[in-house]
């Protein structure tokens, strides 16, 4: 039984991303398919966490709510691609780099599983200590794993040297993550920062 590129990349990223190297042209479907899959996973997670069931209404609403993540990721990737001398179509780069999102999808599956098992009064325990430490550790693992995979994507699929790949990923993250955080926390961000500094 053949596993998907996302699943295989989780364990042997270099092999998978070497196989994804080379031109596969552009096209709207190539540009959209993996970001849409990510949105489907995010919408499903929101549905199970907020509503306790998988419904079209909540999946779509959750996907709309978190659409800013792939949008910022793609916009940041477009900036990074300008540094690459040989022309790589954006659609191809998006398809390759979004293959590295397996750790986040696993994280969402774990969150959905916990929400499915826990009752409504049990779920808030995961937002307070000590269980919050477990969530933070799982998130840290997902971040490290994802960055490792994204490095492989740039290194092997987009054919960058090791140093260039590190620089590309650093720039991609430096653009996409802060932009997403500013959008998500918006007006709360400044009081939160002030509060953390004053505590």
């Amino acid at each position: 039984m053949r596993l998907s590129p996302e699943a295989r990349a989780l364990v042997s990223p270099a092999d998978v991303f070497r196989g994804l190297a080379g031109g596969r042209g552009g096209g709207a479907w190539l540009l959209a398919r993996r970001p849409l899959a990510l949105l489907l996973a995010m919408g499903s997670t929101v549905s199970i966490l907020a509503g306790g069931r998988l419904t079209a209404r909540l999946v779509v609403d959750g996907a709309i709510s978190f659409a800013f993540i792939p949008i910022f990721e793609i916009a940041a990737l477009a900036v990074v691609l300008r540094r690459i001398p040989r022309r790589v179509p954006l659609a191809q780069a998006v398809d390759v780099v979004f293959t590295a999102n397996g750790p986040w999808i696993l994280w969402m599956l774990a969150a959905s599983t916990i929400a499915s098992i826990a009752g409504p009064e049990e779920l808030p325990r995961w937002t307070s200590r000590p269980r919050l430490y477990f969530v933070a550790a799982a998130t840290a693992i997902a971040i490290a794993w994802f960055v490792r995979l994204e490095l492989s994507a740039f290194r092997w699929a987009l054919e960058r040297t090791r140093r260039e790949a590190i620089s590309d990923v650093a720039l991609h993250r430096a653009l996409a993550w802060p932009a997403a955080a500013v959008y998500f926390f918006a007006f709360a961000l400044w009081p939160m920062i002030v509060g953390m500094l004053r505590r």
Binding site: S4, A7, L40, S44, I48, G52, R53, L109
Partner: peptide, 19 residues
């Protein structure tokens, strides 16, 4: 229906990631 939607959704999504 609730239980099926939750568990089936997670299994289906995991399958879409894996395969």
């Amino acid at each position: 229906l609730d239980v099926f939607s939750r568990l089936g959704g997670i299994i289906g999504l995991a399958g879409l990631l894996l395969f």
